[in-house]
Computed example of a mutant assay.
Amino acid sequence: MSTHLITGAGSGIGAVLARRLLDRGDHVVALARDAGRAKQIAAELPGAAVIVGDLSQPGRLSWAFSKQHLPDRIDSLVHAAGVVDLGDVGDLPATLWEQQLAVNLVAPAELTRLLLPVLRVSEGHVVFVNSGAGLRANAGWSAYAASKHGLKALADALRAEESAHGVRVTSIFPGRTATPMQERVHHQEGAEYDAERFITPDSVATTILTAIDLPRDAIITDLMVRPGR
């Protein structure tokens, strides 16, 4: 039975992925931002273990984990959590830059660093759920796109550094996906939200599973997923 640690397992792509892994008999460890959210996720994902760590405060993750039991084996670490706040460069305050960089970039780097010893022993797989914004930046998307461009750089560097240890690294770049975060984006854009126009979270989860389940003689390094309509 494989063990998968997933951030963002309480909603959207991460939640769908966690359920599919549990349904096939794998062990899932979900990361929650606080104790209250941990109880909610545990109720929503029966059979999953939940640990607590606030991604908006990456510098405190080490302390938080020192108070909890972490798995002795991790076959995949999936970074699916993220936040987005749109705004032009001339209008976006430093606090929103800091929040998006912390959750979307610094926390994945720190979480990966803390779990690398286990990932090396397990010859595990690190999956970064990036975004189309990680490949190009449009007006109003500067902070979010910067965090996602940085996430691609993190993945590329990690892949080069850890291949000798048998750790595989994949970046997934989904286009607009029908998640609560996408609904929030549309609200910020002042646009009508129509989930039927976008990729389903299940389709993105399928691409993640494809990467994770690929035989070890090959690796998907970067995978772009776009709406088919």
Rank of each mutant, 00 (worst) to 15 (best):
R20C: 09
V52R: 05
A153C: 09
A30F: 11
V204H: 00
G90W: 05
D26E: 14
H69R: 13
L158H: 04
L45N: 03
V225Q: 06
I208C: 04
D202Q: 13
R197D: 09
R33E: 07
R159W: 02
R216Y: 12
K152I: 03
A38D: 12
K67S: 13
F198I: 09
S66G: 15
H149N: 02
G14I: 05
A64Q: 14
R168Q: 09
T179L: 00
G59Q: 15
H125D: 00
R229Q: 10
R159D: 08
D91M: 12
E162H: 06
D91H: 12
V28R: 06
E161N: 08
R73C: 13
G90D: 10
S2N: 12
G47T: 01
S131Y: 02
H187L: 13
I212R: 00
W97Q: 03
V29M: 08
I172R: 02
R19E: 12
I220E: 00
A80Q: 00
M1L: 12
G132T: 10
L21T: 05
A32Q: 04
G90R: 07
S11M: 05
L45V: 06
T210S: 14
A195V: 02
V129W: 04
Q100W: 09
G90V: 03
G132M: 12
P174N: 01
A38F: 13
P46K: 09
A18W: 04
I199D: 01
T3A: 10
K39S: 14
S11L: 00
I74L: 11
L86Q: 09
F198C: 02
V16N: 00
P71R: 05
W63K: 15
G47H: 01
G10L: 06
E123I: 04
S171Y: 04
Q99D: 14
D72W: 01
A80E: 02
D54L: 15
E196H: 14
G228Q: 14
P227L: 08
D88E: 13
V28F: 04
A15V: 02
Q68N: 10
V52A: 09
A178Y: 12
D156K: 01
S131G: 07
G25T: 08
R197C: 07
K148F: 01
S76N: 06
L105H: 01
R226G: 07
A109M: 13
L5F: 03
L45I: 08
H79M: 09
V185R: 05
L135P: 05
I220H: 07
V167L: 03
P201L: 04
R24D: 07
R136A: 15
V204F: 03
T95Q: 13
H27I: 07
G140L: 01
N138G: 15
I51R: 14
E189M: 15
L135K: 15
A49S: 14
A109N: 03
T210L: 14
A145L: 07
L31D: 06
T207Q: 08
R37F: 09
F65C: 07
